[in-house]
Amino acid sequence: YANEGVPQAIVQAMLCELPVVTTPVGSILEAVTDQETALLVAPRDVGGLAAAIRRLLDDPALAQRMGRAARAQAERRFGRDTMIARMEVVFRGVVDRHRARRTGIGARWERLRRSFLRRWKEWRLPRAYTRLGTKYGGWWIDCGAIGADPLMIDCGLGRDVSFPAAFLAQFGGRVIGIDPSPDSLAYCRAHTPAGMEVWGRAFWIRAGETPPFFLPRSKETLPPGADGVSGSLVQSHAYVEGGPRLEVTTTSFDEVLARAGRGECDVLKLDIEGAEYEVLDDLCARGLLGKVRQLLVEFHHRATHHTLAETEAVVARIEKSGFHLVHVEGRNHVFRREDLG
């Protein structure tokens, strides 16, 4: 290919578990990974093309391994649920822009209705709950469940440290903030309150891995309301498609607790742009969620290849691990460990 988008022939071959030999032009790198699902050669390099084909013919095990990896990658990036989720983001963006232009009594009534429902849900919260932080970055927490020397692990900071700042101002203790995005790190390190440390790591199942981290594309191409800061370990995230990537180092819940010298944390907040599904499944499976007193999660169904049904399944798993779902605010879910009384 001399100039291409993402050729259907490549995606179809990957779904048939065939390794791919291609060139790194156009948007082909969005579909394949060199040496894992494809062999890349320079455009118009006849000798390189022949050598790559010969390598696969001479090594059937390599061809089979790359074929299996190719199918898994194609299903993850171009599967039905992923493509529907991406299309839904586009359509929702159009609808949101249309609603933003609405005026008159109908629009005012809709805003009033949403405000009333939000206030009603907040009024029904137990009395010990308070909201800390700004409207954009704040969360509800149970003040009565915070210990004498609390630890909060805040994963996914963005450009707003109002929540950890308010937490430290009210309870003291220690906050460990975790985010690998360069823009987020620059902002947070310039505005870090006393008692908070910021780690330039990606929160994941295992520590010490070096996966690709996908950064958001330019802000003018993002849907209305997107901050243009948060990246993701999940390439299917609607905001990172077509954006740059960088290699990051991961940390994990085990490592954070060990380095903090703690047996548990008072608050674990996860706003990790789609990686929360794998992380929470792992914490539930290994029984580590019991070391969290309050769990705050922003789920990213539809914004990634994950579906609402998957979110509901993870919520059910968290509840079976001994947590009560106290409050839902949009995608934000507030859990409290049941044995805290």
Rank of each mutant, 00 (worst) to 15 (best):
P60L: 12
P60H: 12
A61D: 14
A61H: 12
A61W: 10
L62R: 03
L62V: 09
Q64E: 10
Q64Y: 02
M66G: 10
M66R: 12
G67S: 05
G67I: 05
G67K: 03
G67R: 04
A69E: 05
A69V: 08
A70F: 03
A70T: 01
A70N: 05
R71V: 02
R71Q: 07
A72F: 03
A74D: 06
R76L: 08
F78N: 01
F78R: 10
G79I: 00
R80K: 10
R80T: 13
D81T: 09
D81L: 09
M83D: 02
M83T: 09
I84P: 07
A85D: 06
R86Q: 08
R86L: 01
R86F: 05
M87F: 14
M87R: 15
E88L: 12
V89W: 13
V89A: 13
V89N: 09
V90W: 04
F91P: 04
F91N: 11
V94K: 14
V94G: 15
V94E: 15
V94W: 14
V95S: 14
D96N: 13
D96S: 09
R97D: 09
R97A: 06
H98D: 01
H98T: 09
A100P: 06
R101C: 08
R101H: 10
R101K: 12
R101A: 10
T103Q: 07
T103W: 06
T103D: 02
G104A: 04
G104E: 08
I105Q: 10
G106R: 11
A107W: 01
A107C: 08
A107E: 02
R108C: 03
R108D: 11
W109E: 13
W109S: 07
E110M: 00
R111M: 13
R111W: 11
R111D: 06
R111N: 12
L112W: 15
R113T: 04
R114W: 13
R114Y: 12
F116N: 06
L117W: 05
L117T: 05
R118I: 00
R118C: 00
R119E: 04
R119L: 01
W120E: 11
E122T: 05
E122I: 03
W123Y: 09
R124N: 11
R124E: 08
R124K: 11
P126R: 03
Y129L: 10
